[in-house]
Amino acid sequence: MSKTTIRIPTPLRNLTAGAGFVEVDAGTVGEALTLLERRHEGILQRVLDEHGRLRGFVNVFVGERNIQALGGLDAGLEEGAVISIVPAVAGGTR
């Protein structure tokens, strides 16, 4: 178990009572997100789909690395890790 900070982007803060970050003790990214959901019900469905996979319009980083390059939700956490939930931002003229 590692003390981990989860950074919450502004569009999801209505689910964390306005908190910009949440601290949990977790061994993997998946565990950290499960603990986040336990603390703030409803937030996980904005990050994971019904099969428990990362949604296409959300990126998750540990430190500066996308978890896709770290083993996904099984990515391990070191003491003091920072998880960032990063909304995918896109659009266009047409």
Binding site: G20, N59, F61, E64, V86, V89, A90, G91, T93, R94
Partner: peptide
């Protein structure tokens, strides 16, 4: 020319700098 997908690493960097300054994206 008519679509954009913002680099999430640029978002991550901006978010970190904003938070350090007491601000947000």
């Amino acid at each position: 020319h008519d679509r954009y997908t913002l680099n999430p690493e640029d978002f991550l960097r901006a978010d970190g700098e904003a938070r350090a300054a007491g601000l947000d994206v």
